[in-house]
Write a protein that binds this DNA or RNA. Structure first.
Lengths: 162, 162
DNA sequence: CACGCTATCGCAACACGTAGCGATAAGAGG
DNA sequence: CCTCTTATCGCTACGTGTTGCGATAGCGTG
């Protein structure tokens, strides 16, 4: 799908004018709504759900429509500026401008999430690449389970059998 | 989402009376609605979405309510008779009576899914177990990506870069 | 600048699930 | 068989996204 262009970018920040130019270069259009969404993304770090992004856009402009936001997020993902995965609850989790594609761990007990760096994610996905020739989308991968802390908490305070 | 090449579970091999007994043994109740849902599951092989199950229950009894179905599915999952994960589209995918916990691959191009057997799934998840002490829920894991067929189809018919 | 093509917008309706609540009925005990 | 407790039911309303459609407005061109 999308090839992410090279970007000269300061630490953690994004050259958003470049997004605008790329949008125009593809025959897409630069609109007030898209500018607003990019402003919101610029002020965002880490992971956000779709509805959080809608909410933040509404703070800037109460007239914001969900469908417009989601459609723009689709476009940005297609262009490689975002990725999304699904949380344990099945909600969409967006990750803004990852410097490198990475996967996630999410604990179903305490809800915390961790990022897997590229090397680790690669080693996770390597077996299926070898045996099935399967090219995994690392950015979409969220592994659900229990973190080390919650596992040992469970061991310390065992449940009664029914 | 056309073909599902993965091995389906022969759900006819399950003693559903056992489910009823376990439900009662836990102080839960055996109702007409639950019996109907189990009948539907009994006639089901492989993976189903939640709404498909609701639909099939409605074929047997048009009065079926979605919330009742989903609540019963939760109960059955809690008892270990089902597991669910999320498809590429974020929909719930239920797997009936897995003989062994297993993960899935799903191709985002052609939509097909494959099962990973226990050994393979284990090797996928092993790196995060080692480095993070993370106990992954294999049954909930769906790895999205492109299958070998679609990858090579893409190579044969390349897209223009921008 | 005006024109025209069409991408995008906002709206309304829908699809999938979840949650709260009063009414019903499962099933244990007398 | 009757009573009582409370798990479950069906309903309604909500939350999160998606989709179809007519209206609007970017932006390339004359």
């Amino acid at each position: 799908m999308a090839v992410r262009p090279d970007r000269s970018v300061a630490s953690g920040t994004i050259a958003w004018t470049q997004v605008r130019d790329e949008i125009r270069a593809r025959g897409l259009r630069w609109t007030a709504q898209r500018r607003r969404i990019l402003e919101v993304l610029e002020a965002t770090r880490g992971h956000v759900t779709g509805s959080e992004l809608v909410e933040r856009c509404r703070e800037r402009d109460p007239a914001t429509t969900p469908s417009t936001v989601y459609r723009t997020l689709d476009v940005l993902e297609e262009l490689g500026y975002l990725s999304h995965s699904h949380s344990a609850a099945g909600r969409e989790e967006f990750h803004v401008m990852p410097e490198a594609e990475h996967a996630h761990l999410q604990c179903r007990v305490c809800g915390r999430t961790w990022e897997l760096d590229a090397d680790e994610a690669e080693s996770v996905v390597d077996p299926v690449a070898r045996s099935h020739g399967f090219a995994a989308d690392l950015g979409h991968l969220t592994i659900l389970g229990r973190c080390a802390v919650c596992v040992s908490a469970e061991a310390a305070e065992p449940r009664l059998p029914a």
